[in-house]
Amino acid sequence: MNLQRIMALVKMELKKLIREPAYLFLMLLFPAVLTLAFGIAFGDPALGMDFSVLTPGLISYACIFIIMTVAMSFTEQREQGLLKRINVTPMTSGEFIGSHMISNMFIAILQVVIVLVMALFFGFRPLSDVVGFILAFLIIALFSLCSVGLGLITATIAKSAGAATGISFIFILPQMFFGTFIPITDTTRIIAMFLPSYYVVDALASIFGGAPLTSENLLIDFGVISIVSVAIIIIGIQLFKKYGNK
């Protein structure tokens, strides 16, 4: 592993985030606008919606969109011959994927900060301590790996950046409807339990709700998120290496 190579690509990805309007909107402005919209619509407790309940969902929903940006980024780079160009440098595939994981973890953490800060204006009052916040950031960082993995799977299937946008919704929509900010019924819970976002929202809700960090429920959530995220990123890397990098 060469840190110079990894950091060069991380820097490039972050420049893209700032300079490319589509990425800037999806990654940073969209979570802000979504939180603002939900804050205005449901910020008043008299409406019967508790914004504290919505916030964990908004955080994970923002992170889910990493699937789309990763898929777009990889397909664009493939279309423009940039993947091949990087492939003929001494950079290893581990360093290449590692740089994407780091840059997307960083973006996911930025998203959490944006949503949390804005949510505070609409009455969100987390009951967790510093350690709880660190755990929340760790959970989101892990969840971003899952999104990177799903993005790689999307990029493997998609032939173009346009197709990648559409195909990414296969992974985004179920997590959006059954695992983020939309209330879950007993029936939809059965579906939701197969989605990683459900465990992320459950864990964040426990942390921000002041549950003990050693509670069984939280540990199970953390375990599921860790295992699923690692498994999905490994599957994504293997599929993309074999079929997507052509």
Partner: peptide
């Protein structure tokens, strides 16, 4: 150019 220089370490 600098990006690819860095990729060559």
């Amino acid at each position: 150019i600098e990006l690819f220089g860095n990729l060559h370490a």
